[in-house]
């Protein structure tokens, strides 16, 4: 016990010191251990910034199906009906809850990736002496997002939406439009103006087959 005791306490203190260090917001000290933090988060992922800040929008996910031959389009929005059902069936809403988390989580993933990549692009353009992003940059962003896991999940769900609406998946291709319907500011909470909607990602047309 005399040998084990210091080992146990050292391990305990070291673990919590590491946990404290690697969960704090980025700062000069924590960034010195960036690589160690990545390894730590890979094994023991944790993020504790709940609703900080809370979203100030409702999410909308539009699937725009286009007939490959006739070029006719049909658009379906999927988030609002799921959220409405989730509210109506609360607290017995685990089906809607699961689908909501799957879709919303993927949309949030795309939004976060877009934000990070745009920041990186702006920085690179500044370094190169450019004052604004060009279309090739936007095209690269879109391509990168469309190869990501979050987009693949939403694209796969498009096939389910197509089947529900009796669309032939072989004959149609789909475009995803992700948008935010902004909540009015607190000071405008009694306003009767229609809420502003902003699309933050519009994909290319992709096939429905995996």
């Amino acid at each position: 016990m005399n040998i084990l005791r210091p080992i146990i306490y050292l391990a305990f203190i070291s673990y919590f010191a590491a946990t404290f260090l690697f969960t704090m917001p980025d700062n000069y000290v924590s960034l010195q251990f960036y690589h160690q933090q990545q390894v730590f988060q890979q094994w023991l992922f944790q993020r504790w910034g709940f609703f900080a800040p809370p979203p100030n929008y409702d999410e909308r996910l539009y699937y725009e199906f286009r007939d490959k031959l006739t070029r006719q389009t049909k658009t379906f929005e999927v988030m609002e009906p799921i959220v409405t059902l989730k509210q109506q069936k609360a607290p017995f809403n685990w089906h809607e809850d699961i689908v909501d988390y799957l879709l919303s989580g993927s949309m949030t993933g795309i939004g976060d990736d877009l934000h990070d990549m745009r920041q990186d692009l702006i920085y690179r353009n500044k370094q190169a002496g450019k004052s604004a992003t060009d279309t090739s940059g936007e095209h690269m962003l879109r391509e990168t997002i469309q190869h990501g896991i979050s987009f693949q999940t939403l694209r796969n769900y498009a096939a389910i939406v197509a089947q529900k609406n009796r669309l032939d998946t072989a004959r149609h291709e789909v475009r995803l439009i992700l948008s935010h319907v902004m909540l009015p500011k607190f000071a405008d909470r009694f306003s009767t103006k229609p809420r502003r909607e902003e699309a933050y990602f519009i994909s290319d047309y992709v096939t429905l087959n995996r």
Binding site: F51, P54, Y57, D58, V83, D100, S104, L183
Partner: peptide
């Protein structure tokens, strides 16, 4: 903050 957390549809 709770204005927003109470108002989000999800």
């Amino acid at each position: 903050a709770t204005y927003y957390t109470f108002s989000i549809g999800r």
